[in-house]
């Protein structure tokens, strides 16, 4: 019994932390946020070189051959820096979708960075469609692959400039990939559960940043002649942020572990994680703003970047309400 990351996973974690702290400053995030398309091509190229696009993909398909826990480790670190770019849409949505559909010829170009992709469930809101060269489309019971020339992408203003949602008009028939079952929640774990678990891991990193940043601020900021961190009203909010963050970490990593091992409770564990993390991240990043006071409400402070990422992430994998209901339905003790 050991919940701790193993040595390989810890090595990957510290490598990812070091790399991202060097490469993804607030300036990098803001530059993508304010750019026409939200892209961060230099960063993306380096992530491709590190093999991150195929961390959980089998070596026979050109991946690294790790699993969902290792990918969760990297997603957490990306969340901590609010990293921009189409890593999420490509590595966390499209790659697991294509692998599960057995479309191995389409996976390679995503891993080597020659193409980027996303998944369409609802054509009115498609994650980072403006950055995609290909699209996995859930079309009723069937999944299809469409190239960029088979769709029209209409950007819409998006709350998070680093994770944008666009409308997509589908013009072509594309290539039929088979049943779309893997991309829709069921009673057993499917590719869509992996996507939700990666998103939860990213939320853990986001919460950790909000917690660290808030703790530092309340230690430094003085009011009434004392650091505001001495006040219990402030301390207790920080304590609750800690509980939310650590519990989310337990939730996200257990889900990734259960999916990696193919445990019978993997689908349940994913909904447990999503139900908890989606609400917890909203609370933690909201309290981060609250405890910063006025500065937390400014464009200048980074708190809003994380709050907006959470606002987007909260609705992507199905709502917390949906996952509470699904957890209740899948409760192994029912």
């Amino acid at each position: 019994m050991d919940f701790r990351l193993n040595e390989d996973q810890r090595t990957l974690q510290s490598a990812a932390r070091d790399f991202l702290s060097k490469e993804v400053s607030s300036t990098v995030v803001r530059s993508a946020f304010d750019s026409p398309d939200g892209d961060s091509p230099e960063l993306y190229k380096k992530m491709v070189e590190l093999g991150w696009l195929g961390l959980a993909v089998d070596e026979s398909l050109g991946g690294v051959g790790y699993g969902p826990v290792e990918q969760a480790v990297v997603c957490e670190q990306l969340g901590y820096r609010c990293a921009p770019g189409p890593f999420f849409s490509t590595a966390c949505l499209a790659v697991p979708a294509l692998v599960s559909l057995g479309a191995s010829d389409l996976v390679g170009p995503l891993l080597d960075g020659s193409k980027r992709a996303t998944v369409i469930w609802d054509p009115e809101s498609v994650v980072d469609a403006q950055l995609a060269d290909g699209f996995v489309v859930v079309d009723g019971a069937v999944a299809r692959w469409l190239d960029a020339n088979e769709v029209d992408v209409t950007p819409r203003g998006s709350v998070d400039g680093t994770r944008r949602l666009s409308s997509v008009t589908i013009k072509g028939k594309g290539r039929e990939l088979g049943s779309s079952e893997q991309l829709q929640y069921g009673d057993e774990a499917r590719a869509v559960d992996l996507m939700a678990a990666y998103l939860c891991a990213e939320l853990v990193g986001i919460m950790q940043w909000a917690l660290d940043t808030t703790v530092q601020y309340v230690k430094d900021r003085e009011a009434f002649g004392r650091p505001i961190g001495v006040f219990q009203a402030v301390q207790h909010k920080c304590a609750d942020m800690l509980v939310h963050t650590e519990t989310s970490r337990s939730a996200a990593y257990y889900a990734a572990y259960a999916l990696a091992k193919g445990l019978p409770d993997a689908a349940y564990a994913t909904s447990v994680a999503a139900a908890y993390c989606l609400d917890a991240a909203h609370s933690v990043t909201g309290e981060c703003i609250q405890l910063h006071g006025g500065i937390g409400f400014t464009w200048e402070h980074d708190a809003h970047l994380y709050f907006k990422r959470v606002t987007t992430n909260r609705v992507l994998p199905g709502s917390a309400d949906y996952h509470r209901e699904r957890a209740l339905r899948l409760d192994p003790a029912r």
């Binding site: 019994m1 050991d2 919940f3 701790r4 650590e246 519990t247 970490r249 337990s250 939730a251 257990y254 564990a269 909904s271 447990v272 139900a275 908890y276 309400d321 996952h323 509470r324 209901e325 957890a327 209740l328 409760d331």
Partner: peptide, 25 residues
Amino acid sequence: IRQRLGQLLVEVELLRHNSERAMSP
């Protein structure tokens, strides 16, 4: 009622995983 049950279920599962994490070191 289902939402409240669901939330309690989620939290009690995570009590277990928090505990496993706390015990591990």
